[in-house]
Amino acid sequence: MLTSDDHSFAVLAYGESPYLAECVESLLAQTVRTRVFVSTSTPNEHIRSVARRYGLELRANEAEPGIASDWNFAVSQSQTPLLTLAHQDDTYEPGYAEHMLGGMAAVERPLIFFTNYGELREGRKVDDNRLLRVKRRLLSPIGWSGSADDLRTKRRVLSLGSAICCPSVTLNLPLLPNAPFRADMRSNLDWDAWERFSRLEGSFVYDREVLMHHRIHEGSETSALIRDNTRTEEDLRMLERFWPTPVARAINLVYSRAQASNSKA
């Protein structure tokens, strides 16, 4: 039986995001309250003041900064078996933790839990657009059952793109590698992790309800990676794990055009 004591949110804070407090408030407003701490490699007065305001412990990563380093550090700081890496610009619906605990408890060996999601564009919640519909179709093989434990299904939902929204994911740490994220990718370290996790014994658990919102703005890391072509290059590397190179290149051409919606309403 899983309880609120089994889960933590690690708020990944970087720089001076104006959205950090909004993210924290959404975590503290959960219908089932779990632990929340702030993790950063850029400790500054803005981050410290938000942590103080909400009474949160602040953990500082003193290793060389980088996305994989920051995420793995947050993982290492968790005192609970279940951990959600909450990105500082995003928000969570009040029922996220409650749904997550129920979903994880419903299967024998859950590897990760993740949810449907919407976007935040100019402060407005957008729960339906072309890219979101595509990602939901990609996840449809497990959408109705709510979980997948066979290798074929887990890999099928990853084979045409990164359909799993990273900040919607809760990790079941005892069943995963100690440092789950690898530094050889900047954009697709999450897709890379899910692909490796898909080979492990256990289930991917998916909740079809929109339980978090991912903020889209020009200052986001995702937007920057799209602009400098890193995203497209890494997408091809990932697709080649599932398809022969000519097929992977064709899929990547279509997929890269969809990235334009990251900056368009």
Rank of each mutant, 00 (worst) to 15 (best):
R130T: 05
R257H: 09
Y92N: 07
H7W: 06
H87F: 13
E108K: 14
Y14S: 14
I216S: 03
H213Q: 14
Y117I: 01
G55T: 04
V32L: 11
E119Q: 11
Q88S: 04
D190I: 06
T3L: 09
L83I: 09
T153P: 04
E108L: 10
Q259H: 12
C165H: 01
A86W: 04
I251F: 11
S145F: 13
L189G: 03
S140W: 01
A224Y: 00
Q30P: 05
L56T: 05
T222R: 01
F242G: 08
A86Y: 03
R152W: 08
D150N: 11
S168P: 02
N178S: 12
R33I: 01
P65Q: 11
S145Y: 11
L176P: 07
D184S: 06
C166W: 05
G202P: 06
R35Q: 14
H214G: 05
N61G: 06
R109L: 12
Y14W: 14
I67S: 12
W191Q: 05
A106E: 06
A250H: 05
I112E: 05
G123N: 10
I216A: 04
R121W: 10
F37R: 02
M104W: 01
R59L: 12
E209S: 13
S159C: 08
A63H: 13
R137E: 14
I164Y: 05
S220A: 15
Q88G: 00
D150F: 11
R231L: 15
S26D: 03
W71D: 02
F114S: 05
S223G: 00
V126H: 05
D5E: 12
S198G: 06
R156A: 14
V11L: 08
S4W: 04
E234N: 01
M1L: 15
D149S: 08
E64M: 14
G95K: 03
D184I: 00
A29Q: 15
V36I: 14
Y92S: 09
A63E: 15
G55Y: 08
L211S: 02
R130E: 14
E22I: 01
S69Y: 00
L131T: 08
E45G: 05
K135P: 00
Y19H: 10
R208Q: 13
L171Y: 07
A74G: 13
N262Q: 12
N72W: 06
P110N: 11
E221F: 13
R59A: 10
S256W: 04
V50I: 15
T40G: 13
L189P: 02
Y14V: 09
V75G: 07
V38Q: 03
E62L: 12
C166T: 03
S162C: 14
D6M: 10
L158W: 03
P81D: 07
L82A: 08
N262A: 13
L83M: 13
A224V: 00
I112H: 07
Y117L: 09
Y117G: 02
V157F: 02
M212K: 00
R48I: 07
A51E: 01
D6Y: 09
L176K: 08
R121Y: 03
E64Q: 15
T232V: 10
V247P: 03
A63D: 15
E45W: 00
R152Q: 10
G103I: 06
A63L: 15
E218Q: 11
L189T: 01
R196Q: 11
D128E: 12
Y96Q: 06
N188G: 11
T153C: 09
V50N: 09
V134D: 11
T232Q: 13
I251Y: 06
K125T: 04
R52K: 09
